[in-house]
């Protein structure tokens, strides 16, 4: 059964019709990517799923339940987590406080402390900077922090908005290796990317979104070989 399911979703920013009937599914255990150009509606899709933006039409279902009846923080309690666009770490909070915020809804202090240690093992550079305020971290370190922070809630589904944005190629590889590892640990992942090649590389399935509507969908391998995708996103 689909863990996450969007059906004919229409979202607006004021009068701008940003999503024009998006339908997609993400099954348990998958990595699904949503690729597309600037302003195609990728981030809007994630904002609609997390309840930050309310669609005017259509349905969003999470784990078989109507997700639209819940506020964002309630969805987080049900196992949804998001790495926001541009990382969105709390600049004035320390690295450790950021991680604690990720575990905001959990009350098991001992397990939280253990999870924080695990994040420091996953990304040793965060451990070295645990007492620094996050605003002083480099872009790559902030992305590591944003991912770790999202994992601190022990999510079932992780939504990631452009994790490769603004990162050096070496760091992009590290981040995407980590995404695959997280997935192997049983976390379902919906990945939004402009960098189609690398996203399709690690995904099971993919969707291509263009001007607010799904243009193509299929297994990642097929999409990568699709001439239309090649031409538009993979440089021919």
């Amino acid at each position: 059964m689909a863990l996450l399911e969007l059906e004919n979703v229409h979202s607006y920013y004021g009068n701008i019709h940003a999503l024009k009937g998006v339908s997609m599914t993400v099954d348990e255990g998958e990595i699904v990517c949503l690729i597309g150009g600037n302003g195609a509606g990728k981030t809007t899709t994630l904002r609609t799923i997390t309840g930050l933006l309310r669609p005017r039409e259509g349905s969003v279902r999470f784990d078989g339940e109507d997700a639209l009846q819940y506020a964002t923080h309630e969805l987080v309690a049900k196992g949804l987590a998001m790495v926001p666009e541009g990382r969105g770490v709390f600049q004035k909070l320390t690295v450790e406080e950021n991680l604690e915020m990720g575990a905001y809804l959990r009350t098991d202090a001992k397990a939280i402390a253990e999870d924080i240690q695990r994040m420091y093992e996953l990304f040793p550079r965060l451990g070295e900077r645990r007492t620094q305020v996050a605003g002083t971290l480099s872009g790559g370190e902030q992305q590591m922090l944003a991912i770790s922070r999202a994992l601190m809630s022990r999510p079932r589904v992780l939504l990631m908005d452009e994790p490769s944005m603004g990162l050096a190629p070496v760091l992009v590889d590290l981040i995407f290796d980590t995404i695959q590892e997280i997935n192997k640990d049983g976390v379902t992942i919906l990945l939004v990317e402009q960098n189609a090649l690398i996203a399709l590389d690690i995904s099971h399935r993919g969707y291509v979104i263009e001007t607010g509507a799904i243009a193509l969908e299929g297994p990642a391998k097929e999409l990568r070989d699709d001439p239309r995708v090649k031409e538009a996103y993979l440089g021919g």
């Binding site: 969105g88 909070l93 915020m101």
Partner: peptide, 24 residues
């Protein structure tokens, strides 16, 4: 305190704070 940290988080970025599960 946890509430105080949440206050600082909300003060910095309400949307991300909601994504942490904070009821703003």
């Amino acid at each position: 305190s946890k509430r105080g940290k949440a206050m600082r988080a909300v003060s910095e970025n309400k949307e991300v704070a909601r994504l942490m599960g904070i009821d703003i």
